[in-house]
């Protein structure tokens, strides 16, 4: 579904990403974890086109058909099946909860051949994230955790094939977090791929098929949740002890 190859990003003298490569297979839930400042959000920005890499490429596709989208603007990548949420919440503050999601469904109808009613799609997505009862509320009345769910519903309304979720569990209580985990598993069972950035390590370990660990802009580990948990480099990055 997604291939990131040898991506490098520099901000002046700071190297935010160094030769990062990773792959997200079809219908897989891949975790991307790492300490603060490791470069996770920068990588999301590179994948969705908000940040231009100094080197490397981003490809979308499957099987033998891969398209290099590195030079495409964000809206064209979205039309090729990329959806995302943001670490710093980016809801449309002048719109209601329903309108936030509706705007995405309407945008999809303007560039796809999807005939589904945008209003119905919006309601379905809100139902799916458990916010249907709040659909007429203005978004500026909601808590941070609920706003993250609005973002998830909005991203889903574009019916993406690959969903990039940037800390969707932040601000949720344990019950809500568990429900979110179940939702992610369901979405993958529906055939979607997900790349998940999340600080709730328990959630990541529970739902992800494989995990990439970033530290100081580099992938320091990659494997199944069990493999990553046992990796000394990961323990060092999180606990600050020597990897040796």
């Amino acid at each position: 579904m997604l291939r990131v190859e040898d991506v490098e990003v520099r901000f002046g003298g700071v190297q935010a990403l160094k030769g990062v490569s990773l792959e997200v297979p079809d219908a897989a839930l891949v975790g991307l974890i790492g300490p603060n400042g490791a470069g996770k959000t920068t990588l999301f920005n590179v994948i969705t086109g908000l940040e231009k890499p100094n080197r490397g490429s981003v490809r979308l596709g499957a099987g033998d058909t891969w398209v290099d989208v590195t030079s495409l603007p964000p809206h064209q990548r979205a039309r090729r099946g990329l959806g995302r949420t943001f670490q710093r919440i980016e809801v449309f503050s002048s719109l209601t909860v329903h309108e936030n999601v509706l705007a995405a469904a309407e945008a999809r109808r303007s560039w796809s051949r999807d005939d589904a009613s945008p209003a119905q799609t919006a309601s379905e997505m809100l139902e799916r994230v458990g916010l249907r009862h709040l659909e007429h509320e203005r978004v500026d009345m909601l808590s941070t955790g609920l706003l993250r769910l609005v973002e998830v519903a909005r991203a889903l309304a574009s019916r993406p094939r690959l969903l990039l979720l940037d800390e969707p569990g932040s601000g949720l209580d344990s019950t809500e977090s568990e429900a979110l985990g179940d939702l992610l598993v369901e979405l993958v069972q529906d055939g979607r791929s997900i790349l998940l950035v999340e600080h709730d390590v328990e959630l990541v370990m529970r739902v992800c098929h494989e995990i990439h660990v970033l530290d100081f802009g580099q992938v320091i580990a990659h494997g199944t949740p069990d493999e990553v948990q046992r990796d000394p480099a990961v323990q060092a990055a999180y606990l600050g002890t020597s990897a040796a």
Binding site: P74, H75, L95, E151, R154, A155, S158
Partner: peptide, 17 residues
């Protein structure tokens, strides 16, 4: 809605296509 969305958050609007 598209105008308001673009005004509120150009980045989020672009990532919805």
């Amino acid at each position: 809605r598209r105008l308001i969305a673009l005004n509120d958050s150009p980045a989020a609007s672009a990532t919805m296509g």
